[in-house]
Design a protein around this nucleic acid. Sequence first.
DNA 1: TCATTGATGCGCT
DNA 2: GCGCATCAATGAT
Length: 195
Amino acid sequence: MNEASVPLSREFYARPALEVARDLLGRHVVRRIGEKALVGRIIEAEAYGGALDSASHASRGLTPRTAPMFGPPGHAYVYLIYGLHDMLNVVTGPEGEPSAVLLRAMTPVRGEAQMIAHRGGRRGRVLSDGPGKLAQAMNVSVSELNRHDLCLGERLWLAPGEPVPDARVTAGPRIGIDYAEPQDRDAPWRFIIAR
DNA sequence: TCATTGATGCGCT
DNA sequence: GCGCATCAATGAT
């Protein structure tokens, strides 16, 4: 494991989701499957949680599904949406205060051919430009990686990568949360790397 | 390039 | 039973 792929520390995650989401842009997602390593650069992320975020799963309280969000930071929260797609989140903030960041998109850095295979041969922009696509390209599933500790450097973790300056960052409302209260629906908690 | 729609399974009421 | 932090195929502009 070289310097660029050392796992981000627990302290990195133990901050407000909003701060972590912004800071995750340009960082690397590392997935190790046996001897093979897949690396992607995060280009889009969304914060969920905070005091009273009606868009967050955790706003309904602690349930078996949302339990990881209430747990210690630096763990994965993976869930299935629409019966089809796995969503990869990282748990943030102090234990007991539910929050997480959804990884929404990445670009391939290493192991692109393997990612394409995971995606059924789809390549180019559609390889990993959505949360379900990102998880599928990385072969991340609820059954294998929900609650996984991202600070171990085993199977799945995030690494320093190349942080992005503010001038390259754009914030806007989150996607697919029309059901949320207006102030949460409109909050600029989605971060992307402008191009 | 944009809008529409079916797919599909589980958590929660 | 309802609805969901989505995707891909389809058809129109």
